[in-house]
Write a protein that binds this DNA or RNA. Structure first.
Lengths: 249, 249
DNA sequence: CTTGCAGGATTGTTCAACAATCCCTACGCT
DNA sequence: AGCGTAGGGATTGTTGAACAATCCTGCAAG
């Protein structure tokens, strides 16, 4: 890139789009492909918390080498979806109440900061940046109407991911991705997705409307209370469940 | 909060210390050991940004297999200390101004939230939790007196790491570790560590004293301004440097 | 000056083997 | 019987070699 010039902005963003497409087509392949499959299995609950992932077993299923599989394990480990126990293997982590508190602490810090920070850059922010949020809100409402509560949960997650996306921070995006993946891990312990997700459909909409009206401080306060409430709700649901299925030894 | 068993705290932290020592002794060995060495080489500037890390070359130096070395690469990649370019190898990333803004955005969100959050849990917080911070402040002052400016930078980093540590959040700790490692990457581009670090010696002390006096809101406001100023300072220093050593072709 | 094509070098991935460690069971001792 | 311990089997950690795919360099042709 040696041709300097202000005129170049248009072409540069164009090149960036192409580059992104190329990167998507031939991504590191085997290892990441295996990781994708495992990620879905975990986040969708096929692999319950505490389960061990045998290497030889998965090499056959995924049709990759053991080394490549281990690389996939490393990827997921750093997303918080797997934990390594030295000389014992990889396991789906079993999160406890302390993790709930930890995760929500982070969520609050990040999301509230993003919303509050929107006030400082309001003029730059095009209105259509809120469109993904709007879509997620409507998707959640539609899924709720069809009694598809896991889909409501997914739409809710996407809403918050898109909310973070407003900050244009690659690191916040990555971090939120991991954070929400871990949260999804927690949801599978809870058997009543409806009571869990239902209250947040309306809250997401009202939050969206506050953003649309550019009442950012109000939105931030609302979001804070929102997350405090959500944490409390999950904690209690989690404890009830925890007392229900403890050790069987 | 709730949770009984206040008496148990002493023993629990004791066990945790032992467990940490044990874990340090027989850690995943080869791959992580190799990663440790590389991490130091990178954060201390031996490997400049943009440098490529040859596989065959490093297998000889580190005396590990290529597969193990690649696992070490993956570890560092997810810490942001290396970047993979498909079929071309691993490189020390070259961060730009956008990364500075991104990193500082995160720092502000996390650190300010931690300090502000201390107000809510003040009664629980033992006074000796502030000791590590105090040590770091004095270490920075001592290093400055001896004209050892890189050491000042290290002490400054530790100060902020310990600051985050007050939140008792494992995820915030890990995140901050990666964040500061990336920042260290940036510092090596800047040739004048003195001008960079000197102003923060006094600011760290005053921040510490505010914390000691439990004036958390005031400390949070101070820290926010602190980080804004630091970001601006690094941005300008970075730009001056960027115009100084661009193309050599 | 650009285009096209070898050749060499480097990375991506697999495979098979061995060493190290963990888990479990069975044995021997008090 | 109870308890510590040694052995066997399974699993992970690590290695080295091998092959395919891709990138970079230099050179020749248009």
């Amino acid at each position: 890139m040696s041709t300097g010039g202000a005129e170049e902005t248009g072409r540069q963003s164009w090149l960036r789009t192409v580059a992104a497409d190329v990167a998507r087509l031939d991504r590191s392949s085997s290892a990441e492909r295996a990781a994708d499959i495992l990620r879905r299995s975990i986040t969708e609950g096929a692999l319950p918390p505490g389960a061990q992932l045998s290497e030889v077993e998965l090499t056959e299923v995924l049709e990759v080498s053991r080394n490549t599989l281990r690389e996939a394990f490393r990827l997921l480990t750093h997303e918080g979806l797997l934990v390594y126990k030295l000389h014992r293997g990889v396991f789906v982590p079993e999160l406890d109440e302390h993790d709930v508190i930890d995760l929500y602490r982070l969520r609050r810090a990040l999301e509230v900061d993003v919303v509050r920070g929107l006030a400082d850059r309001d003029p730059e922010l095009p209105a259509d940046r809120l469109e993904p949020l709007h879509d997620d809100v409507e998707a959640a409402e539609a899924a709720a109407g069809a009694d598809r509560w896991p889909a409501v949960g997914t739409a809710n997650m996407r809403f918050h991911q898109h909310l973070i996306g407003l900050a244009d921070s690659a690191r916040m995006d990555a971090m939120t991705g991991r954070l929400l993946a871990e949260l999804r891990l927690l949801f599978h312990v809870i058997a009543t997705p409806r009571e869990l997700h239902e209250p947040y459909i309306a809250r997401n909409r009202s939050l969206f409307e506050l953003l649309e009206a550019r009442k950012y401080d109000e939105a931030a306060a609302d979001l804070h209370e929102y997350l405090i409430d959500s944490e409390r709700r999950i904690l209690t649901a989690f404890r009830d469940k925890g007392l229900q299925s403890p050790r069987t030894t």
